[in-house]
Amino acid sequence: MQAEVTPAPKPKADQSAAISRQRAKGYNLHAGDKYYAFAFLGPSLLVLGTFVFYPMLRTLYLSLFLTDNVGRPTVFVGLKNYIGLLTSSAYQASLQATAIYVIAVVALTLILGLLLAQLAAKKLAGIQWFRTIFSATMGVSVSVAAIFWLFIFSPSIGLFDQIGSFLHLPIVAWLTQPGPAMTAVVISTVWMNLGFTFLILFGALQMVPQSLYEVSAIEGASESYQFFHVTIPMISPTLFFTSTVTLIGAFKSFGLIDLMTAGGPNNATNLLVYRVYQDAFLSGNYGLASAESVILAVIIALFTLLQFKFLEKRVTY
């Protein structure tokens, strides 16, 4: 903030001092301005305060307590919720499942999204059709997608097992065995993510000037060389953006898990978010669920920070 201007020692400097005094005033709010500022900020402060800041603080507070089954704090337990969680083998298994799920979802979403975007960027007859289809999952709701995937994964009569039996492969009980169940939710989540990721990456690909590819072709770069040395660097800001958004989204996946496996079988798909839901709303263990939320938030923040720290260096705007 600009400090008060010292009075000019000589009359000659009076004028400039007056000007800078006037300027300095510009940085200070008049009494009336303050009201305006609050009037403009008020609505968003109110909304954010009610729905973001207060719940955050309340979660932090609750994570230090045991609660009754409607969420009122009863006994202060300090960090015991956290310690209990981090030493529980079930929670560790959940952490592990989440890690596998997130890594698989982010990697597959980006790779497949980029592949589809590359395909859709080709100038072929009827490509417009495919562009629409590729981005169509954006318009599908989670519940519809879950039902649709449940059918595909259903044992014996489902599409996957039909194809499998046609090829004389053993029948897989997709949603009732731990490994296949994780595979199934990963596939469904990636499918749901693809529309958005495709659209964003496709847009980015369209923005790469054609002349860069032309000059590369003339200078002797192969298609794959062009992909890694022209395309990837040119769309790196978008890749960074989609990877961050997908990562955060994967940590927060709830709908598909709830509708397809409900965390099962044998907690194989019991991701961190789903645990929070189970502990809070099914078991009424709000203190524990709050602690889990806080841990999840910290993990997401940490990963996002790491992403910014390491990936952004490679991004060229």
């Binding site: 000037p209 002349s211 860069l212 032309e214 000059v215 590369s216 003339i218 200078e219 002797g220 770069a221 192969s222 060389y225 040395h229 022209v230 660097p233 040119m234 790196s236 060229t316």
Partner: peptide, 27 residues
Amino acid sequence: LTMVFQSYALFPFLSVTDNVAFGLKAR
């Protein structure tokens, strides 16, 4: 042969040196 474009077709993410070296590295 080689080509110079109206838009120059320089790679914005590469330094002058790397831009000039692009074709040689590719080959």
